[in-house]
């Protein structure tokens, strides 16, 4: 298969998100694309997802999951179905907060974006665009400064970690009523996934969790699957979803105007500034891991 050549072994062995678990119909076929590979999924009678390399099936076909013999590995985590085209590790990265009983956990949509998955991760890590892209919600001119923050690559957990990130926000969350300086922690625990923790307006001791899981469909096209795990006793799930979709709806046209669509790993391809420390760490981490999918690897 031609696309085999394009998928680097590290990417091939990763768990990859493909759909919100609740949204996969029982007994009917859903189709999608993962790493240039057509795949199909359904849920069996017990509600367990079944994923396979798609051949003749069409979306909406009725199917008996028991008849599918050659299955791809499946994991359900954080409300999403994950699979792999290679030999994945036993489990994916932890988000312990997801299990806290009083949190509102929700998927916030799976949105196609004409950009590579790593470009979308980098945008998720970026605070400098808040006043310009999420005007009057996550930021507003003239409060544009990105203050110094810390970035490290955790050896133990093999993830990029940015801490002490602070930004002035007019309306940081649905439950926020006035502007505050919001504190963020960003994690990149997977080449195509990122998790952020931000000050929770309702409870100072806790943090809201928002995650983006990117499904790399092709080298320069992805689907963004969004997760919220919120401490919010007032808002409805619909309201919280709408808020997150508004935010991502503002990111999408910017992402789709980035040239080139794949993320360039050559340090001389673009011009970083101090505010981009986390993006620089992320690009180096991808380079070191040998990720070649969705990126333009550094020559030589």
């Amino acid at each position: 298969m031609k696309s085999d050549k394009l998928i680097d072994p590290v990417t091939r062995d990763l768990w990859q998100v493909i759909a919100a678990a609740e949204e996969v119909p029982i007994g009917a076929v859903e189709t999608t694309l993962l790493l240039d590979t057509p795949i199909a999924l359904t849920r069996d009678g017990e509600g367990q997802p079944v994923v396979w390399l798609r051949t003749v099936e069409e979306a909406g076909d009725e199917i008996d999951a028991d008849e599918i013999v050659e299955r791809l590995p499946v994991l359900v985590r954080y409300g999403y179905v994950w699979t792999s085209l290679g030999n994945p590790p036993p489990d994916i990265f932890p988000i312990p907060e997801y299990a806290e009983p009083d949190r509102k956990n929700m998927s916030c949509g799976s949105i196609g974006v004409n950009v590579s998955a790593p470009r979308a991760v980098e945008n998720f890590l970026d605070m400098g665009h808040f006043p310009y892209v999420h005007t009057d919600i996550l930021g507003a001119e003239p409060h544009t400064e990105v203050k110094e923050y810390d970035v490290e690559v955790s050896e133990e957990r093999d993830e990029v970690l940015a801490t002490r990130c602070r930004f002035f926000q007019p309306r940081a969350a649905l439950s926020a009523t006035e502007g505050i300086e919001v504190e963020y922690v960003y994690r990149v625990p997977h080449p195509f996934c990122s998790v952020l923790y931000k000050s929770c307006p309702e409870d100072e001791s806790r943090r809201d969790v928002i995650a983006i899981f990117l499904q790399p469909m092709t080298q320069d096209r992805c689907r963004a699957h969004l997760l919220q795990s919120m401490v919010d006793s007032v808002s409805t799930i619909t309201e919280l979803r709408r808020f997150q979709q508004t935010i991502f709806g503002q990111d999408k046209p910017i992402l789709e105007n980035q040239m080139p669509r794949r993320l360039p790993l050559d340090p001389r391809a673009e011009t970083p500034i101090r505010a981009d420390k986390s993006a620089i760490a992320y690009r180096r981490w991808l380079s070191r891991k040998g990720i070649a999918y969705g990126v333009i690897p550094q020559a030589g």
């Binding site: 310009y132 544009t144 400064e145 500034i273 101090r274 505010a275």
Partner: peptide, 19 residues
């Protein structure tokens, strides 16, 4: 995206709002 300003004629960057 980030409000960088570029000058007429030179295309030189004159302002980076993040800093």
């Amino acid at each position: 995206y980030h409000g960088w300003r570029y000058a007429n004629r030179s295309a030189g960057c004159t302002y980076i709002p993040a800093h």
